[in-house]
Design a protein around this nucleic acid. Structure first.
Lengths: 96, 96
DNA sequence: TAAATCAGTTTATTTTATAAACCAAATTAT
DNA sequence: ATAATTTGGTTTATAAAATAAACTGATTTA
C-alpha cells in the first residue's frame, strides 16, 4: 500500500538540495545555501550525510584564493531521488 | 523557490494516516494500524498529534463491549494535506 | 481460572534536525 | 600596519521527533 520513504531524502533540507542538484547538476555551497535558505551549519551537516550515502559528490577546491565547495548529484543519488518521488506517489494519489 | 513543508505532515506515518483518511473519510484504529504497518504505540502517538493539530477528529466509542477508536479527517486537515501536496511539488517538479 | 488476545496508552530510548559557536583565510577600513 | 569584517565553511550542543518497548485493562478462549 504505502511504499517506504528513504529517510535520507525525507528531510526538507536534504530534499531541497537534491531537487536543486537534479536540475543544475553542479552547484556551489553559497548558492545552495541561498536557494534553500538554510544556515551554513545545517547545510554542511546535510551535505555530509548526502555525500556519505553516495547521493552527491562533493569537491573541495579553490576559486582564486577562496575555498569553494562544489556539489553534484551522483547516478545513485538520481536513482534514489526518482525512487523517492515514486514512493511518495503512493501517499499522494487519491483513489489508488 | 522551495515552499516550507508542514512538519506535522512531513512524517512517514502521519502522512500515511492522512492519505488513508482523505480517501476513506472514516477508519478504525486497527484498520489504520494494518494499512500503515505501524506499531500500536507509534500510531497512538501520531494520531494524538494529528488530533491536537485539529487535522483529524478522534471518536472513542465502543463496538459491542470492546473499545473502538474511529478517526476522520477534518476540513482543516484536508486543507493542510492539500497545501502539503502543493508545497511538495516545488521540490519534485524539475524545471520550475 | 489461567492463558492468550484485543485495543489501545504511557514511557523511555534512539535518532534527527537545527542553530549556535567556532575556525581560518582573505578582504576592507582606519 | 593592524584591527575589524566578511567569506566559506566545520564542529559541537541542544531541542525536537520518531519509534519501540513496556504497560494497562477488559474480553475471550482453553
Amino acid at each position: 500500500m504505502f511504499q517506504p520513504l528513504d529517510p535520507l531524502l525525507h528531510s526538507e533540507l536534504r530534499l531541497a538540495v537534491m531537487s536543486l542538484l537534479v536540475s543544475v547538476e553542479e552547484a556551489e555551497f553559497p548558492y545552495i545555501k541561498e536557494q534553500t535558505g538554510a544556515t551554513a551549519g545545517n547545510l554542511s551537516v546535510q551535505l555530509d550525510k548526502l555525500s556519505e550515502a553516495g547521493y552527491i559528490a562533493v569537491e573541495k577546491t579553490y576559486k582564486g584564493k577562496r575555498p569553494c565547495t562544489i556539489c553534484r548529484i551522483t547516478p545513485a543519488g538520481l536513482k534514489a531521488f526518482e525512487d523517492y518521488v515514486n514512493a511518495l506517489k503512493s501517499y499522494l494519489e487519491i483513489s489508488k
